[in-house]
Design a protein around this nucleic acid. Structure first.
Ligand code: MN
Ligand code: MN
Ligand code: ZN
Ligand code: ZN
Lengths: 135, 135
DNA sequence: TTTTGCATTGCAAATCATTTGCAAAGAAGC
DNA sequence: GCTTCTTTGCAAATGATTTGCAATGCAAAA
């Protein structure tokens, strides 16, 4: 876990519950919401609270260690940061999240912002779809 | 207002408050949230309630007459549907929303979904940025 | 190690945007 | 105008997330 380094560097303390949550984020490579994270963490440390999950997500987000996504409808979902940038396709039937990236789209976004006189600080591209029948 | 036709066709009743809200949506061409809409409506009809604004937005959304956007941070914002599809650039300083469209991006999205074995049902592309200094 | 100080936790209560139950008021069709 | 079904305003409920607070626990210092 390199997360601990991030925490220490930020002057944050490494607690049992943070270690637990961070381990889960590092191992599982999906996009769990706070409740899912809480349930997984509870299996390891039954004394952990949902508040702590939320607080940890908030602090990690501020430190840039995780990313928060708010897909349509549902609650916020999280994933560890640090990988290279990507966007998401959400399966509207299952809620599953598929990652993808397109340098061409990224470039086009820049061009558009530029033309409009803006400098992009962040962006969000989400595709919502259903699996194509392959019969 | 062609909204009334939409309402009637859906078997909905045309009330004073709906007429008021619809007129505002038709005239103003920005992306107000429920509270802003409520305030504007109140000026015309002081007896209108925030609940009614929310209920009207919900019903109009279901009928496809308006679109709901949930930009990062803030509450849902609305705009009349019917224009051609476009995406949004949000000025993170002012909250102002600039519309844009890119056929090239739209096409790329389709290709990506196709490659991943998905059929796009909807999508969301939002650029968050700040105005470029032009000095 | 122990001590000490400040951060973090669990819990319950608060918040915020949005929805909903309900009784009263209002459309629409007759 | 009468009847029926819808819509409204209000207050209370919701759901996700945050926060106050007293208790607990890190971690740096002694
Ligand atoms: Mn991801
Ligand atoms: Mn728009
Ligand atoms: Zn991207
Ligand atoms: Zn688009």
């Amino acid at each position: 876990m390199d997360y601990e380094t991030v925490l220490r560097a930020a002057g944050l303390r490494i607690t049992r519950q943070r270690r637990t949550i961070l381990a889960i984020l590092a191992e599982d490579d999906d996009h769990p919401d706070a409740l899912a994270l809480y349930r997984r963490a509870s299996r390891i440390d039954p004394s952990i609270s949902l508040s702590t999950v939320y607080r940890t997500m908030k602090v990690l987000e501020e430190k840039g260690a995780i990313q928060r996504h708010t897909f349509e409808g549902g609650p916020a979902r999280f994933e560890q940061a640090g990988g290279r940038h990507h966007d998401h396709l959400i399966d509207i039937e299952t809620g599953e999240v598929v990652e993808f990236r397109s340098d061409r789209i990224e470039r086009l976004q820049e061009m558009i912002a530029e033309e409009l006189g803006y400098e992009i600080v962040s962006h969000r591209l989400e595709l919502y779809g259903r699996r194509r029948k392959a019969d």
